[in-house]
Structures are given as structure tokens and as C-alpha cells.
């Protein structure tokens, strides 16, 4: 048997995970020294309350999972004789996978016959969500773990993600976006447009002034880089900005009639880095920039 894991940084909720029979690894965030594990013990997350607290001045932090946590997720599967496929968020963005490797070394010694497969979506939030969903469909149809890994080797780069943040202070603090100017541009309506590059890192593509204008820039990226977008899932993500997301969806559908969009709210752990009022898109593309 194969057990498939993904993590909450892919924006998968317990409900979506259940559609595919995936198990969910909870990626934590901390506020004032208290660590929270999304969806542990509950299925619905109050996104609005979380992002509102950020608007009110809360600055959460995130941390890597410990080795023991990975063991607690994986060992029961290995012990039950299952192999594991883990579709995860970008390894280039975190040290957490070091802990996972250590956990796997321990488990390999104990369960040498068990197999562990991993797929790096080279993204976080919506592009990871999109890839995990595509993989979920394929796996449902009978794709094997080996085939899934093979598919990912070529296909992950064909899913792109572009988004903008409303307030740079979250990213500036996290230091996870390359090429960001150290300005206070958010106050004057200047927003950075960020994408996930081929290495699985976030990178600034410059700034755009004005909310409509920045959403137009996102649409432009779809026009320039999109590949048969109406035939694929198209994800619109937001950090508690449903009205903006709906507006962007409208703009996209005007350009691409028949586009099938799905809107998701960004998970709190990733949201800790980008802050509220941001909007982004993930779609099938001709390839990622750079």
C-alpha cells in the first residue's frame, strides 16, 4: 500500500486532503512564543481572524518541524507495511526537510524494506496546491509513486505562481524573497510582484503601483506565460482578501472565457510571511521564469 502525504503549506485543508485520501502534515507558526499547528484537532481554520490579527499588528514567526514530528507521522505507516509518497512545499525555502531526512535515516534503519518517495512542488501555497491536486487526480487514476515522481521531474516547472503582497514588512522580516527593495512602498500603493522560480524560491519581479494595475500585471503574466490555461485548473489565492480575489477572477475570465478557477485562502504558516490583503494566481504555463 502507498500512503500519500502532503503538508499544510500546500494550502491543502483536511477536506481537500480527504478527497484524495492524502494525509496532512501540519506546518507550524508561532505567535508570542506559542506554537500553533494548523488543522491539528480541527478541520476548519478561521482565516479571517488570523489575518485580522496580523492587520492589528501581530507578527507571527514560523519554525521547522522537529525530527520527532516526522517520525510520528511516518513510522505508523512504515510499521503497517505501507510505503510513503510525500508531495511537499519547496525544500529550498526551509530547513524543515533536514529534520525529515534525519527522521528518515532513523526509520530506514528500522524499516529497511519500506520505500519513501518525495515530490518537491518547488513552491508554496497555491502552486503547490495546484500541483498536488493534479497529482492527486493522476494517482487516483492509478498512477504509481514512481510514475508520479517521474511526472514531477518534468511537469513541476510547468506550473507557475505569481502574486503580490500588500505590506512588505512581513516579507522583509522573513527575508524569504530575493530582490526586494527595502522601501515602505506598501504605504503608497506600491506592491511587489513575486514569483516562484525554478529553484523553488520566491523572487521579486519589481513593483507595481495601484491595486487594479497590479492585478492587471498578474493577468499579463498569464497571457505571456500561460499554456492552455482553460484546459487546466487555475488557482486564485488570497490572504483574506476575497473581494480582490473575486475581482481578479473576473478580470481573468474576461481575458480567458471558460477559465475554471478555484479560489483558496492562503494557509496561516505561509501567510505569516506575506501578510494580509495579498492575492496570487497559479496556473499551467510554458515554464517558470528563470
Amino acid at each position: 500500500m502507498l500512503t500519500i502525504f502532503t503538508d499544510s503549506d500546500t494550502d491543502f485543508t483536511p477536506k481537500v486532503a480527504a478527497e484524495y485520501g492524502f494525509k496532512l502534515i501540519s506546518m507550524p507558526y508561532s505567535i508570542d512564543g506559542k506554537t500553533f499547528y494548523p488543522y491539528e484537532g480541527y478541520d476548519e481554520f478561521d482565516f479571517h481572524a488570523f489575518y485580522d490579527s496580523l492587520r492589528g499588528g501581530v507578527l507571527p514567526t514560523t519554525s521547522a518541524l522537529g525530527e520527532d514530528r516526522y517520525i510520528s507521522y511516518f513510522e505508523p505507516e512504515f510499521a503497517a507495511g505501507n510505503d510513503i509518497l510525500y508531495i511537499h512545499f519547496s525544500a529550498a525555502m526551509t530547513m524543515t526537510f533536514q529534520s525529515m531526512d534525519n527522521a528518515l535515516k532513523t526509520l530506514k534503519a528500522k524499516y529497511p524494506e519500506r520505500k519513501f518517495y518525495s515530490i518537491d512542488t518547488k513552491g508554496i501555497t497555491i502552486v503547490s496546491y495546484l500541483i498536488a491536486r493534479e497529482l492527486g487526480d493522476l494517482l487516483k487514476k492509478g498512477m504509481s509513486a514512481e510514475e508520479a515522481v517521474k511526472w514531477a521531474e518534468t511537469e513541476v516547472d510547468n506550473y507557475s505562481q505569481y502574486f503580490f503582497a500588500d505590506d512588505l514588512k512581513f516579507f522583509r522580516r522573513s527575508g524569504r524573497v530575493g530582490g526586494l527593495a527595502a522601501t515602505m512602498g506598501g504605504l503608497i500603493g506600491l506592491r511587489p510582484v513575486i514569483h516562484m522560480n525554478k529553484e523553488g524560491k520566491m523572487e521579486s519581479l519589481g513593483t507595481v503601483k495601484g491595486r487594479i494595475q497590479v492585478m492587471e500585471r498578474l493577468v499579463k503574466y498569464v497571457e505571456e506565460c500561460g499554456d492552455d490555461v482553460t484546459a487546466h485548473r487555475f488557482i486564485v489565492g488570497h490572504t483574506d482578501a476575497p473581494e480582490l480575489a473575486a475581482q481578479l477572477e473576473g478580470m481573468l475570465k474576461e481575458k480567458f472565457p471558460g477559465l475554471q478557477t478555484e479560489t483558496v485562502c492562503t494557509n496561516p504558516t505561509a501567510g505569516s510571511h506575506c501578510g494580509p490583503n495579498g492575492v496570487g494566481i497559479a496556473f499551467h504555463s510554458k515554464g517558470r521564469l528563470k
Binding site: 527593495a181 527595502a182 522601501t183 515602505m184 512602498g185 504605504l187 503608497i188 506600491l190
Partner: peptide
């Protein structure tokens, strides 16, 4: 002044 101050890139 406000717009220019907010636009200063201190990393430059």
C-alpha cells in the same frame, strides 16, 4: 515628501 520618503530604498 511622503511618497519620496516611503520610496527610499535603504538597501541601495
Amino acid at each position: 515628501g511622503y511618497v519620496a520618503a516611503a520610496s527610499i530604498d535603504r538597501s541601495c
